[in-house]
Nucleic acid binder design. Structure first.
Lengths: 162, 162
DNA sequence: TAGAAACCCTTGAGTGACTACAGAGTCAAG
DNA sequence: CTTGACTCTGTAGTCACTCAAGGGTTTCTA
């Protein structure tokens, strides 16, 4: 099959497939006479695996580790477990941060019930004072502002994220 | 004061300040004889405002709107309220996504209790099957994977996020 | 069989909000 | 006068794509 069909089957778009190939996540496929990439079932499997992992907001590097284990069935999978545990930790951590963030934002929102002139807006006042903005962040799960073009995965944003 | 002191006072780093200047968030400051940027209290105020907003995971564009209102005290602040409401919505949405994500990851993790060979790892098995990876994402709040160098704000990642 | 439409190719740039680095200049202390 | 801390500009890198230009190939329809 050609790249367009692979894209449809795996729910990706074509540029992403070519990007994964450049990035070494997908093997370089055969080419047709007209220089078109030619794929088979194994590519569908592998790409689907990658997209499912991305749907779980793993980084491409994490996915690389998982792919390595898929290809080395005799190895011990303890690293897979560790990777997933760490990833779950990231997600949990990010959720805590967001909860704190939500609390702060709601606090702030309550400072200005109705519209008035900006000089007396409680929100702007609040933002001008030094309330403490939580702590540090060290996870990799992202994505609240995302405007367009997310086709069918929980990408959240262009980086990777939990 | 010079840029280093401003950075310390506002809890930013120096490159970020220059970046904000290029990006139009901070006014172009005066220069010393030796071509050093010279800042005053108003810069500290403004930069701190920006960093507090960033701590609440607002985008630089959102912050630009807020700065505009701070500078136009006679205008009606209804847009400020709207902006914050939308932002809170983004955060809430992202939290729901993360909850779903956590559920899926924990499901997956339970498939492989202890280490064995990768050929029989329930996690790799699970990732190879077609469980549905949630829905689309359209927020802008990010950040679970973030590895280093987050100094003192809830950045989460390099994009912006809720 | 011609032409159009749909598909594919490569290359390069753009996204957001920084971060890092190279190579040079400035300044204060010892 | 040297050392080291600080600053300057400019450029490239981050992450995971996404988009567009400018061309070639294949397939469908008239």
């Amino acid at each position: 099959m050609k790249i367009g069909e692979l894209a449809r089957l795996a729910g990706t778009n074509v540029e992403t497939i070519r990007y994964y190939e450049r990035d070494g996540l997908l093997p370089v496929p055969a080419r047709s006479e007209g220089n078109y990439r030619i794929y088979g079932d194994s590519h569908v499997q592998r790409l689907s695996f990658i997209r499912r992992c991305r749907g779980l907001v793993m980084t491409l590097d994490e996915i690389r580790v998982l792919l390595h284990f898929k290809e080395s069935p005799q190895e011990n999978c303890a690293d897979v477990n560790r990777l997933l545990d760490r990833h779950i930790g990231h997600v949990a951590h990010r959720m805590q941060e967001l909860q704190e963030l939500e609390r702060q934002l709601k606090d702030l929102r309550e400072r200005c019930g109705e519209a008035r002139d900006a000089a007396h807006c409680g929100i702007l006042d609040g933002l001008s004072q030094a309330f403490v903005p939580g702590g540090k962040t060290a996870s990799h799960v992202q994505g609240t502002h995302r405007h367009a073009a997310n086709r069918n995965l929980a990408k959240g944003n262009q980086g990777n994220q939990v």
